[in-house]
């Protein structure tokens, strides 16, 4: 797994690629949490991953909790249907913001 980080319009965009599973969850956690520690506007892109297991979902939830407590904003963007269905069955669609694109996520950041 590789994690790309970019800053656009004052929002840190994190893009993991490949498998987000137990073997890569630590790297994913390090990438996401270091972004959370330096910015309170975070977007995570999901269109370059093969799948996300519960180990990866755990990291997304941790980031969501941390940003909620810091009055920051986390938006999950570009999520393919197969990945969205896993977020939905986990109940994450009710507690996290999910948006089709970065463009549409700006309503939350502004």
């Amino acid at each position: 797994m590789e994690i790309k980080t970019a800053v656009q319009d004052n929002v840190t965009i994190i893009t993991p690629t490949g498998r987000v599973d137990t073997s890569t969850a630590k790297a994913f956690e390090d990438g996401v949490m270091s972004a959370v520690n330096s910015s309170n506007k975070i977007a995570i892109r999901f269109d370059e991953i093969d799948y996300i297991s519960s180990a990866g979902l755990r990291v997304v939830l941790m980031a969501g909790k941390k940003l909620t407590s810091l009055k920051g904003i986390l938006v999950l963007i570009n999520m393919p249907e197969k990945i969205f269905s896993i977020f939905k069955m986990s109940g994450f669609d009710k507690i996290l913001k999910i948006c089709p694109s970065f463009e549409e996520s700006k309503q939350f950041f502004n």
């Binding site: 519960s54 979902l57 755990r58 939830l61 909790k65 069955m89 986990s90 109940g91 009710k94 996290l96």
Partner: peptide, 20 residues
């Protein structure tokens, strides 16, 4: 099973794997 209806503050971090 995890409680998938709890709020983000109350949501527990574990127990998702076998549930999925």
């Amino acid at each position: 099973d995890p409680d998938i209806c709890s709020s983000i503050e109350e949501r527990q971090i574990g127990g998702l794997g076998i549930f999925i």
